[in-house]
Amino acid sequence: MTNYRLGVLAGDGIGPEIVSATVHVFKTAAQKAGVDINWIDLPMGWEGIKQYNDPLPEETKEALKETHGWILGPHDSAAYPPEHKVKLNPSGALRHSLDLYANVRPAKTMPGIKSVVGEADLVIYRENTEGFYADRNMYSGHGEWQITEDVVVTSGVFTRKAAERIAHAAFKMAMQRRKKVTIVHKANVLRLSTGLFLRVCREVAEQYPEVTVDDYHIDAMAAHLVRRAKDFDIIVTENMYGDILSDLAGELVGSLGLAPSINSNDNLAMAQAAHGSAPDIAGLNIGNPTGIMLSTVMLMDWLAERHNDPKLKEMGQLVEQGLYQSLESGVKTKDLGGSASTSDFAEAISERISQAVLR
């Protein structure tokens, strides 16, 4: 049996509370499924600044290289000291330095959670390294220049390599689901940049003849999500459009605070909820851990496939099932209209995992 080493970066604000709750339920699931996991706490955010004067210490980055994957809690980089604000935030630094090119964000209706769009089950594949985000499209420096006090110029970077690999990731997942991919772009206006992205995705599509493919402009796609989210399966798009659409989709099916994601390349994966650190409620034990728990379920699925270990997938299924059962029975945190604390919610899930009958 493999001993898995998983990094735990609790982060800022509500991070320590929701990450601790997540590790608690996954320890229960690991025991139930018979999986050996070594959870390795590593400093990040304010804890990194206190210990090493760095929100993402080199010691942490080096330790991550020896793990099978890790959980990244939210960070409050807006509140860091000025000398740290000019750097990439911990999330961006990890995505950039480790080339975690795929940001995968599901949006799925959940039991006991009101959805604005009714039933929906889609996954957004966001290219994570290029596009119009100035902090991710340069080898050195930033892709923004202030020419005069009143004029700013920004750059966007689009390459065939980046488009090809996110497209392949999206189409491979489509083959495991409903075999439908939607490409989102703005090639009618940004003809060279997003035009290249669209063209390369269409070329990749030819290698997956069983998959139905369509494409929409980003503005139209936002409207289609609101009107008929249930019709979409896999959506693939560039960095900024993916960021916007995934936040929209998360809110439409319940709440951005529930939205999970992983960031990955072919060898590494990082679980990271889509929401922020909520410093206003830090330390109150009322933060909702659903997003980071479901992100860790995604991490287990990714690891299960990579290491051909069905017990990891079983772990994720135990947590997901226990979480959904808890929500459906009315065990909810304050943000969802319930009265359960963060730790109460985790304990309710753990109890359901312990009582589950393995197939």
Rank of each mutant, 00 (worst) to 15 (best):
S20D: 07
H217A: 12
D344L: 06
F232D: 00
E83N: 08
V116T: 08
N288L: 07
E66K: 12
Q355V: 15
G195V: 10
I292G: 03
N267L: 07
A223Y: 14
G257H: 05
V152A: 14
R177M: 03
V200E: 12
Q51H: 11
A93S: 13
A282Q: 06
P43W: 07
T67H: 07
T154H: 11
L9S: 00
R165I: 08
E130P: 01
N239G: 06
K87L: 12
P289K: 15
A30L: 14
Y139C: 10
L256R: 07
N308L: 14
A269L: 11
M110H: 09
G13D: 01
A134T: 04
E320N: 08
R202E: 12
K230E: 14
N267H: 05
S341Q: 05
D215V: 11
Y101C: 11
A348R: 05
E203M: 13
A29P: 07
M175R: 14
M298R: 01
D266R: 15
R105P: 05
T109V: 11
T22G: 05
D243L: 10
S343I: 09
L94S: 00
V211C: 00
A346K: 08
A271N: 13
N128K: 04
R227I: 15
L256E: 04
A170N: 06
H24M: 09
T154R: 12
A205G: 10
E149C: 07
R160Y: 14
A340W: 06
T22W: 03
M270A: 10
A10Y: 01
D76H: 06
Q321T: 12
N239E: 10
E130K: 04
S97N: 05
S295T: 05
F132W: 04
T148G: 15
E164P: 10
A271Y: 03
Y80C: 07
F132D: 09
D219V: 04
E17S: 09
G11R: 10
L252G: 09
A220D: 12
E203P: 01
S343H: 04
Q325W: 06
M175F: 13
Y139P: 06
A269W: 03
S329G: 01
A273H: 05
A346R: 05
